[in-house]
Simulated scan of single mutants.
Amino acid sequence: MTDDMPDSGPPPSGHWYDQEAGPLVRPYAMTGGRTQPGPAAVHFDLIALVSIDEDAPAAGEGTALGPEHRALIELCRAEPQSVAELAAGADLPVGVVRVLLGDLLERRRVLVSRPVPPARLPDERVLREVIEGLRAL
């Protein structure tokens, strides 16, 4: 071994964190090993908006929620957030956020507004005609 390379011996026992990254919790631990958001196989688009369900059960049920679930709820409290924004705000992988949102949706803690399917969007030709009509005014 050279003096340039530090000894990379075994990590100290009992340490489950990286000094620079902070506590290390694997995504499968946050989701209980699940990779799909609930039994209904709900798919959360990245641009789907998530908001707090005002008719949600009493706060006493919140004790059954994990810290990641509560973090997602807090992020949505001020205003609806997209799935992508929630993943960035909670600093979690999108797959984990989708599973956690599935839990919250099943517990009726959040509402999800899915994006409009492309087939239901107005035709680009129609939009251009509207723009041209407005410019003509």
Rank of each mutant, 00 (worst) to 15 (best):
P6Y: 09
P6D: 11
P6W: 10
S8R: 14
S8M: 15
G9Q: 09
P11K: 12
G14V: 05
G14Y: 03
G14F: 01
H15R: 15
H15N: 12
W16A: 13
D18Q: 08
A21H: 12
G22N: 08
G22T: 09
G22S: 09
P23N: 12
P23W: 10
L24G: 04
R26C: 08
R26L: 15
R26S: 11
P27K: 04
P27W: 04
Y28W: 13
Y28V: 13
Y28L: 13
M30P: 01
M30E: 13
M30Y: 10
T31V: 06
T31H: 02
G32M: 07
G33A: 07
R34V: 06
T35I: 13
T35V: 15
T35D: 07
Q36W: 10
G38L: 06
G38S: 07
P39K: 11
A40C: 06
A40P: 02
A40S: 14
A40L: 12
A41H: 12
A41G: 10
V42F: 04
V42R: 11
H43P: 02
F44M: 02
F44S: 03
F44L: 09
D45P: 12
D45I: 03
L46D: 14
L49M: 14
L49K: 11
V50H: 01
V50Y: 03
D55V: 08
A56C: 12
A56R: 12
P57E: 03
A59T: 14
A59E: 13
G62M: 09
T63M: 13
G66C: 08
G66N: 09
P67G: 13
E68D: 14
R70Q: 09
A71V: 07
I73S: 03
L75R: 05
L75F: 08
C76V: 04
R77Y: 08
R77E: 13
R77G: 05
A78R: 15
E79G: 08
P80E: 04
Q81C: 11
Q81R: 15
S82C: 07
A84T: 12
A84E: 07
E85Q: 14
A87K: 00
A88M: 10
A88G: 06
A88R: 09
A90P: 02
A90K: 01
A90S: 14
D91L: 11
L92S: 02
P93T: 10
P93S: 11
P93M: 06
V94P: 00
V94W: 00
V96S: 02
V97G: 02
V97I: 08
V97M: 04
R98M: 02
L100G: 00
L100H: 00
G102Q: 01
D103W: 00
L104R: 00
L105R: 09
L105K: 08
L105H: 11
E106N: 12
R108P: 02
R108C: 08
R108A: 15
R109S: 02
R114K: 10
